[in-house]
């Protein structure tokens, strides 16, 4: 493998780890955020919205 290709492979590994790592954290923590958002908003009363 050429040095240039090896360098880009390392960039790929770091980028992929960051992407999938953040995806896991965001999916886990985002669920609590989502519950909070829907709880704060509450269901609108029938016939009072658009």
């Amino acid at each position: 493998m050429s040095p240039g290709a090896l360098a880009w492979m390392i960039v790929f590994a770091v980028a992929a780890l960051a992407f999938f790592g953040i995806a896991v954290i965001v999916v886990v923590k985002g669920f609590a955020d989502l519950k909070g958002l829907l709880h704060l908003t509450g269901e609108k009363a029938p016939n009072d919205g658009p």
Binding site: I25, V28, K29, G30, D33, L37, T41
Partner: peptide, 10 residues
């Protein structure tokens, strides 16, 4: 305008 960080990122 009630989105928090993790949900915002997703």
């Amino acid at each position: 305008r009630r989105i928090k960080v993790a949900l915002g990122v997703a």
